[in-house]
Amino acid sequence: MNEDKVVTVNRSLRKQVVIVAMSGNMLLDFAGPADVFTNADKCLSLSGSKMGYDVLIVSPTPDRKVATSTGIEIVCQYSAMEITTPIDTLIVAGNDFQTLQKSAYTDFCNWLSFVSENNTRRIGSVCGGAFALAEAGLLNGKKATTHWQLSERLKKEYPLVEVNTNAFYTGDGHIYTSGGVSSGIDLALALVEEDHGKDIAIQVARRLIFYLSRPGFQVQFANLLPVYESSNIAEKLYDWFNENLHQPLDVGRIADHLNMSPRNFTRVFHKQTGLPPAKFIEKLRVETARKYLEDTDMSLEGIAEKCGLGGLVSMRRTFLRHLMTTPSDYRRAFRTSIKTPGINDVIQPNVYHRN
Rank of each mutant, 00 (worst) to 15 (best):
I91N: 00
D41K: 07
K65C: 13
N25G: 12
E117R: 15
I74C: 05
I91D: 01
D63L: 09
R11T: 13
L44R: 03
V66L: 05
G128D: 04
F131R: 01
A80M: 08
S59L: 05
I72W: 04
M51N: 15
M26K: 01
Y105W: 09
R64C: 07
G128A: 10
T99H: 01
N140V: 10
L150H: 03
T145C: 11
Q77K: 14
A31G: 13
V58R: 00
A67S: 15
N110I: 11
Q16K: 12
K102T: 14
D63E: 11
R64P: 09
T146W: 01
D54I: 09
Q98I: 09
T70R: 03
A134S: 08
L46N: 13
A40C: 07
F30E: 00
T146R: 03
D54Y: 11
A104N: 12
I91F: 06
L28H: 02
S23A: 15
T68Q: 03
N25D: 14
L112K: 04
F108W: 05
I19A: 06
L112E: 01
S59Q: 08
A104L: 10
R14I: 10
S23F: 05
K15H: 07
L90A: 05
A132R: 02
A134H: 05
Y53D: 01
N119S: 12
T70S: 06
P62A: 11
E73I: 03
T8S: 15
D29Q: 03
D96V: 00
G71N: 06
F131Y: 10
F114R: 15
M81G: 11
T38N: 12
I57P: 00
